[in-house]
Design a protein around this nucleic acid. Sequence first.
DNA 1: CTGAAAGCGCTAACAG
DNA 2: CTGTTAGCGCTTTCAG
Lengths: 350, 350
Amino acid sequence: MSDATDRPPLRVTINDVAAAAGVSRATATRALKGEGRFAEETRARILDISERLGYVPNTMAAELAAGRTGTVGLLLRDASNPAYGLLFSRLQDEANRCGLDLVTVTIGADSGGTKQVTALQRLLGMRVAGLIVATGGVTNAQLEPFADQVPIIRAGRDATGDRVHSVAYDEQTHGALLAAHVETLGHRRVAVLATDPAASFPEHVRATAMRDHLEAAGVDVTTLPVGAGPAEGVEAALALASTGRITAVMCPSDYRQLAVLRAARDAGMSVPADLSVTGCDGILPGADLLGLTTVRVPVELVARDVVVAMRSLLDSDSDDLVRRSHAGPLVPGTTAAQPSPPRDSFQGTT
Amino acid sequence: MSDATDRPPLRVTINDVAAAAGVSRATATRALKGEGRFAEETRARILDISERLGYVPNTMAAELAAGRTGTVGLLLRDASNPAYGLLFSRLQDEANRCGLDLVTVTIGADSGGTKQVTALQRLLGMRVAGLIVATGGVTNAQLEPFADQVPIIRAGRDATGDRVHSVAYDEQTHGALLAAHVETLGHRRVAVLATDPAASFPEHVRATAMRDHLEAAGVDVTTLPVGAGPAEGVEAALALASTGRITAVMCPSDYRQLAVLRAARDAGMSVPADLSVTGCDGILPGADLLGLTTVRVPVELVARDVVVAMRSLLDSDSDDLVRRSHAGPLVPGTTAAQPSPPRDSFQGTT
DNA sequence: CTGAAAGCGCTAACAG
DNA sequence: CTGTTAGCGCTTTCAG
C-alpha cells in the first residue's frame, strides 16, 4: 500500500488516488466524473480506491481549473422571519429538484449596509454561476455592475433597470385585496399602519396600496406612520378605536397584526366587535387558529418561478429579462368583521 | 490605460490591478489585504485602482493558494420549520458578531439520506475551516471520518463518539418539565404522542421523557405512536378524551399541539375544559395569543454557544471535546389546566 | 519595501 | 483508452 492510504481524508488528493490506482491524474479525473473515454475496469478500480481513501474532491481547485462554477449563490435576509425562512426553504427545494446547487450567505437583520456588501462579495468571489437575491438590503445599483457577468434574479421584490431579473410578490395587489375586504365589510373609518420605506419597503408598498384603495373608495383613512418596531403605532390605533374614531386598523404585516391583537386583549377590547384588524403574510403556523385576516403571500410560486428562471438563464435557453410578480389569495379571518353600529354618533359619517 | 480597464468586473484579476498600478502581483496582494510591508502611498494607489476596476478577489484561487479557508460551513435542515429558521438566523448573527464567515447548505425536508451526503461533501469540498451541523439527517458515523481534519459541532442535538462536538437542546429535560407541569396540574390519565425515532429523533426523546416522568409519578399513560405527519394520532387522542379515558394529551411539538387544537375546535371540544394540551418549541410568533402550553427551546443560547465554541476550536484555544446541552423554560399557557371533575367515574383513580 | 518564482489541486486540450 | 502538458488566480517564501 502506498503511504497515501493512511493520510487523513481531506488531505487526500487526486494524485494519491491516481498513484494508488497506478494511473495518471487525468485518467483519475475522467473516471471519477464519468466523462470522456476510459476502461470500465479501470474506472471501477479508481472509484473503489478513491472511496477507500476517503477522497473528497477539492471544489475550489476543480472550479478554478475548470473556469466555471456549478453553484448558484443565494443572498438571504434574516431567516427568523418565517416568511423568509419559508422562501429560503422553498428555494432550496426547488433548486435541488432542478439540479441546482445552492450556497447561501445571510446577513443579520441588525447589521448595516456594509455587511450586505461583504456577503455579496463573498458570493461573487466564489464565482457563482448565478445569483438569487432575497433581501432588500442590497440595492439594484450594487447589483447592476455584475449583471452582465452572471445572471441575477431578485426574489420577492422588484428590480429596476434592464439587467437584473426579478420574480416579485405583488404587494400592491396584496394591499388592495385587503383594503377591498375591509371596505366591503362596511368600514368607513380606518387606520392604516404605514411603514417607513426605509424600515421595510414591502410593508410600505402594502400600506400605500391599502390607503390608496380605501381613499379611492371614499373611506376616511387615518395614516399612522411607523418604523421597524412591530409594536409601533399600536397604542395610537387602539386609542383611535376606543374613541370610535376608527372601526378597523390595517397592518402591513401579520407581526403587527399580532401586536394589535395582543394590545387589544390587554386593553380589554374585543376583536372584531370593538375593532377589526387585518395583517399580511399568512404564513404563520396557527394563523388559522387565531383567525388572522390576511393575504397568503405566494412563496411557493415565487420560489418555483425564480429557480426555473435561473435554470433557463444558466442554460441560455433565453436571455430575455425576467420581470414577473405574483399575488396571493385573501384569507378572510375572524379578526375582521362588519363594524358594530357606532355608539358615539359624533362622527356622523352617514 | 491598460486594456484591463474595460474588462468586465468579474474577469478582472489581480494581474490587471497590479499591471495598472505598475507593481507586481505580490505587492498588489499585500497591499490589498494590508499584510506584510509596503509603502502607504503604493497601497493607496492600488486600493484605488482595484476599486475603479471593480476587482473582486477570486476566493477559490485565494484559498487554494493559501491552503486554508476563512469560512465555516453550516449544514442545515429545512428552514420552513421556524425552530430551524430561528436557529439559522441566530447562528448567522452570532457568527458575524464573532467574525466568522458562514456558508450554508441545506437539504430539503423531503429528500433522502443521499442528498444530505451530497451537501456534506459540498461543504467539505470547499475545505471549510469548520463545520456546524444543524440537522439530524446526517449521522455521526458520516461525520466522524472528518472530525480529525476539521472541527465539527452538532447544534441542537447530541453527538456520539469523542471527536464530534455538540451543543444540544436538553430535550429530555424539556419533556420532563412539561410532564411535571401536567402532573402537578392534577392529571392522572394522560395520552402522549410518541414520535417514531426515525421520523424525528428530538420529538422521540421528548415524548419518551414525558412518558417516563409521568409513569414514575404514577400517572396512567396511554402512548400513541405517531410518524412524521403532524396530524397523526390526533383523532385517537380526541376519541380517548371524549370517552373520558384521558384528561390531557401531551404533544412532542407545537405543530402537533396546533393540530390537536384545530381538531378539538372542529369537534366542538373545548380546551382546556374538556382536554388539556401541551406542546414543545415555544417559538411560534403568536404562541402567546393562542395560549400554548409549551417549553421555549433555548435557541439563542445554543447558537451563541456553538459559535463561541467554534471560534475557540479554530483558534486552537482549546482542543477539549465540547459536549453541552441547554434546557429552556416552561411556558405555562391556557391550553393546560386542572382536569375537570370526571363526569364518568368508572375510572375511579382516587 | 518590492519582485521573481514556485506551487495549491484540479481540469482540459492535445498527443500518444 | 491514457499520459503529458499547461495553466486557472492567487499567496508566499526568498532574494533583491
